[in-house]
Design a protein around this nucleic acid. Structure first.
Length: 593
RNA sequence: GCGUUCGUAGCUCAGCUGGAUAGAGCGACGGACUUCGAAUCCGUAGGUCGCAGGUUCGAUUCCUGUCGGACGCACCA
């Protein structure tokens, strides 16, 4: 929501409240959030619409009558408000016709300043976002790519909305699965390194994890040997630790390379090997306070049946921690490390139950911040052929996928004969590949399982990342030809001349201007409900709106220099907004493609 | 069995706290490149919002039931 729209919402809300007071109504009109602001279906009805239905009961009047009274109340507010638009009752709706020159001025200012995003609804809020959390026994796959881009994009959105964001990763670097790849390496590895085999280091580790299956066939005692390795690891056996450290480093290094390629990063890494004993103390304290109970065999339990959950084991009968116990400890540790207002866990929806239990246990332990924990659950990524399964070898490797998309993007660049024009075709191709992949993964609401269709994601037309990148590149192309020098000169003085704004005040420019103006409300909604898909939808709407606009409104090839300059200013604002939106969605912005 | 979640056009998906005529893309069909890059644009066809009740001035949206899919209910993570 732009400043001007917010101004109208506040004014309308105050007028409603005053109306209630003047009628001596005690119950009031609720809070401002309850006042719905929407777009009228047709531009000739106005630019903002406030439905008055919900106030009919309170005022004991028809919605249309209320809208009428509101119109005259607001119209009497005087010049200060009316400078920004005009209220009009349209049936049961109170609509506002915005002063377009004000909106145009606000929007065009984006082309001249880099710090144009001034609406910060999350200002001052501290949000920690946990995502990725890979195992160190194999490389990342398609599911991780969805997790990574969701976490990174959400973090960027929250930051853009004013929040202070801390991105954290928890590396699952211990446990039986790690020991399996270690054991297979002991048997088949022959002391070789990833370099020796010419493999990316995490793929190298993953290869031995797969080889464990072969080992099981050759040696029926393989599972037991892996268990033994885990016991050795826990007892601190030097040789086991050395091997663990070496393979872990290979895995983590390789995974970080994929992060860098994908453009995701973290402010802090937690390692399960360092946190897996945490939480035990808190559980024992909870036990002594009667929050938990001890079973006959010595195990410690939480009884969550009264909130619709089951009984959960927190400590084994031998007193050791389990998964949820670690998470209890880690959450408490984090609240101390960096006291947050909110902690978001980006984790597959398979673990929804786990997080409900975790949050409830933390609440019972007396941590008031437990109500600020949020599980951003996302669905599985399926293939047209069915679910990805490790055992059936249908897992899509992250690096391989990006490679394949890059090859296809490069072929497309060559087919268009643009390889000489884009500079480095391979580099541009990878950026197009990432744009395609990230947009595809973000366009769907996180909660839903989604179908990853390679065919469709590779068709670079329609509702896709490359389409958005293409519109950005077209905007850049127009600006290049239009002479950035003149605009750059104006950046010094800042602002846009009133004449420049007036030349854009007509019906053909308005849809694009209105779309640009709605950036803030899209950002606010995306941050509030934690769904990057809202920004993805906005990105496509903006790109498509721009596409339609520049077809009908020649920027450079028109005879009026003032009009050209005004339109150039508008293109500049589009480019600036698209660049920002792409950054929020982890879509590389391209000047040429 | 219990719980969570999803069900919108042939396909893949939007639809923000209930609001004015449910929207995109793909695919299909028909158009537009001597004009700022056609990876584009324009038009047409296509929906009983799974089904049945309920609440409401108003329900794709909220509630109940039901059918179908997915996931979960380990002293695994």
């Amino acid at each position: 929501m732009t400043d001007i729209k917010r101004l109208w919402k506040e004014a309308t809300y105050k007028a409603l409240a005053n109306l209630a007071t003047s009628m001596g109504l005690e119950s009031g009109v609720g809070d401002m959030e309850a006042l719905v602001a929407e777009y009228p279906p047709k531009p000739e009805l106005g630019d903002i619409g406030f439905p008055m239905f919900s106030y009919a009961k309170l005022f004991k009047k028809s919605p249309a009558a209320i809208a009428g009274e509101m119109e005259s109340l607001l119209a009497a507010k005087g010049e200060t408000l009316l400078r920004y638009g005009r209220p009009k009752a349209v049936g049961p709706y109170l609509n506002i016709f915005l002063d377009r020159l004000s909106i145009i001025g606000e929007v065009l200012a984006r082309g001249t300043r880099s710090d144009w995003n001034t609406y910060l609804p999350f200002n001052g809020r501290k949000v920690m976002v946990e995502f990725s959390c890979p195992n160190t026994n194999k490389p990342l796959h398609l599911g991780h790519l969805r997790n990574n881009v969701l976490g990174e994009s959400l973090s960027r959105i929250l930051k853009a909305a004013g929040a202070q964001v801390r991105k954290v990763n928890l590396i699952n670097d211990r446990g039986i699965h790690i020991c399996k790849s270690m054991l297979a390496y002991q048997v088949y590895g022959g002391g070789r390194s990833p370099e020796d085999e010419g493999l990316k280091s995490d793929h190298f580790v993953g290869k031995y994890y797969v080889l464990f299956n072969q080992l099981k066939k050759e040696d029926p005692g393989a599972e037991e040997k892996a268990q033994e390795l885990l016991r050795l690891w826990e007892s601190g056996d030097a040789e086991t630790l050395a091997l663990w450290k070496k393979m872990n480093q290979w895995a983590v290094e390789g995974i970080k390379t994929t992060y860098a390629r994908q453009g995701v990063g973290f402010d802090d890494y937690y390692f399960e090997s360092l946190t897996y004993t945490k939480g035990k103390q808190e559980v024992l304290e909870g036990l002594s306070r009667g929050v938990f109970y001890r079973d006959g065999d010595g195990s410690v339990w939480a009884d969550l049946e009264d909130v619709g959950l089951d009984r959960k084991v927190l400590l084994r009968r031998d007193g050791t921690s389990i998964y949820i116990t670690q998470d209890i400890g880690t959450a408490i540790q984090r609240s101390k490390d960096w006291p947050f207002d909110e902690l978001v866990y980006v984790v597959a929806s398979e673990q929804h139950y786990h997080f409900r239990a975790l949050f409830e246990i933390l609440r019972r332990l007396g941590y008031s911040w437990s109500k600020n924990l949020f599980h951003l659950a996302y669905g599985l990524v399926n293939l047209p052929s069915g679910r990805m399964k490790t055992r059936e070898g249908t897992v899509v490797d992250a690096d391989d996928l990006i490679d394949e998309l890059t090859v296809l993007a490069q072929k497309e660049i060559e087919a268009k004969g643009r390889d000489a024009l884009v500079g480095d075709p391979a580099a541009v191709a990878e950026k197009v590949a990432l744009g395609a992949l990230h947009y595809y993964l973000l366009q769907t609401s996180p909660t839903k399982d989604m179908l990853y269709d390679p065919e469709q994601s590779l068709s670079f037309t329609g509702n896709t990342g490359p389409y958005i990148q293409y519109m950005g590149a077209r905007a850049c192309s127009i600006l290049r030809k239009g002479g950035e020098g003149e605009l750059a000169g104006r950046r010094e003085t800042g602002g846009v001349s009133p004449a420049g704004a007036a030349v854009l005040n007509n019906e053909s420019d308005w849809p694009l201007l209105r779309c640009l103006a709605s950036y803030s409300s899209a950002l606010e909604a995306a941050a509030r409900v934690k769904e990057p898909s809202i920004m993805a939808a906005y990105a496509h709407e903006l790109a498509s709106s721009f596409s339609g606009w520049y077809r009908d409104n020649p920027v450079l090839s028109n005879p009026d220099p003032e009009l050209s300059q005004g339109r150039l200013d508008l293109v500049k604002a589009v480019k600036s907004t698209l660049e920002q939106v792409c950054s929020l969605l982890c879509i590389p912005f391209l000047e040429v493609m």
